[in-house]
Amino acid sequence: MIRARTPRRSAGAVFRALLLALSTALSAAALPAFADGPVSVTDRRGPQSFEAPPERIVVLDWALAEALLDLGIAPLGAPELTLYRDWVGTPAMPEGVTDIGLRSAPNLETIASLESQAIVAADLSAQEVARLEAIAPVLVFDAWSADHDNLAAQREIFLELALLTGRTARAERLLSEMETEITRRAEALARAYGGTPPDTAVIRLNDAATLWVYGENAVPTAALEALGVANALPQPPSRWGVAQKNLDALAEVEEGAIIAIRPHMAGAQVFESPLWQKLPAVAAGRYAEAGPVWSYGGYLSLLRHARALSDALLALAE
């Protein structure tokens, strides 16, 4: 896990981090790519062995699709591609990926017809896993749960997928690049605010009177934390890390800032209301927008959130 709660890191530390990243990258380049030998990865049921790193992989949800694309591998099949391109966007879903239907009910016959070498899924029942096992070897992870740290789970999934596809070096490099970039952004934020950035609430607008607030166990909140910014509107951890509130709940953000993740959809009408305009944060000019980013994404979406949120906060500091 990234624990970048120390934005005032010394220049020496940054240098050392950069050096570390560089050496990791170099060693990755120097090592040959994984031989086509057997691989063993661990999912929620324990170690799973593959005779060779699979190349034809079907994913059953968007976070897993993100993780695979971040590793530089296009999935063979993924669900609801049209909506993915609208709502997730980055990393881009290449043409030629087969749409396997609804995330809640992926089409088994389509998956079978793809002749995949592995199916990667999250949060399925044992019965559903057994059905998929008939098609191809399955990896199933516990991804979203109120009882664990969702981000830690996504990191684990990312690394296991890297192990599966023989791209551990690339994954390590991506992670260290992410850490470096988030550290750099945290420092830029601290500089811009001359110390600690304001406490910030991250929301998504719902309609004129309701919105979602991101709390514990949500990707945007973890990104805030990594940037060294405290959550101005903490919510108890839940499975998806969001709570639905009425607009006036935002009044609790008195000294802090508010960032809304796009797209706003019907929520855009809220901007005209006096209640919104008189919210302490909005009235003081501490409101900004970020995104679009998918809030229930894979581990690297932490970086995408950190970019979007820190850009928004930097814009506010000007």
């Binding site: 719902n206 309609d207 004129a208 009177a209 309701t210 009425n246 005209e272 209301s273």
Partner: peptide, 16 residues
């Protein structure tokens, strides 16, 4: 956003 509206929410953010 239709879920909460479908369930009938009276929350207001002004008089409009």
């Amino acid at each position: 956003h239709l879920f909460v509206w479908g369930a009938g929410d009276l929350g207001q953010s002004g008089w409009q």
